[in-house]
Design a binder for these strands. Sequence first.
DNA 1: TGGGAAGTTGGTATTTTTACCAACGAAGCA
DNA 2: TGCTTCGTTGGTAAAAATACCAACTTCCCA
Lengths: 106, 106
Amino acid sequence: MISFQEAEIRSNIIKALAHPVRLMIVDLLNHGQKPFSEINSTFQLDKSTISKHLLVLKEAGIVSSRKDGHDMIYELEAPCVTDFFACVTAVIENNIRRQELCLCKG
Amino acid sequence: MISFQEAEIRSNIIKALAHPVRLMIVDLLNHGQKPFSEINSTFQLDKSTISKHLLVLKEAGIVSSRKDGHDMIYELEAPCVTDFFACVTAVIENNIRRQELCLCKG
DNA sequence: TGGGAAGTTGGTATTTTTACCAACGAAGCA
DNA sequence: TGCTTCGTTGGTAAAAATACCAACTTCCCA
């Protein structure tokens, strides 16, 4: 069994992905690096909110950033996180199947 | 790009895994189904706390449960979630490497 | 059928997360 | 150098997550 400390470290990474906005940012960056302004304009949220979401992803080691003139460029540091999506999609589809089953039964 | 609603559904699944205790439970169940009492005895936490963690995992569709006499048996419904661990481990190792790099520089 | 064991649910206090606004720091340009 | 644009940081209020205790339900067995 993994230790609580090990689990805590792992959960901190997973926690960074556990927010819809941050998931969308990861999806966006999966298509290539993007300047902050472009990420920000994708959402109807305050820029400080987006900046903090990016900080969470950065501190988890999922994205990295670098300055380029006026812009701040963000890049996906761990593209493997998109592997998560395959399993998540499978779980969602399984859940839907199960719900349909319940509807048939009831 | 994925929609906010799609991202919300996905993040709900990921959120269910974003807790050290729940990660440990998944790791435990990855070695085979287990009765509640055995899961519970792994932690120094109130049984109601464990029960609620299991409910979170169940509502996400990650585990399932069934009654067997006095026991409640829990089982991993979506074993693919353990795939997450490979990427998470990679991210952690990458983070450590980066830290060491900083230490060398400084 | 009464008692006990096994889990779940309700209630609540504490902590964490999230989003906004406002103010600040950094970098290029007039 | 002053201006402006870009993004971050600080502060705060609201919402969500977490853990405990206590009470309840269910199911087996005497």
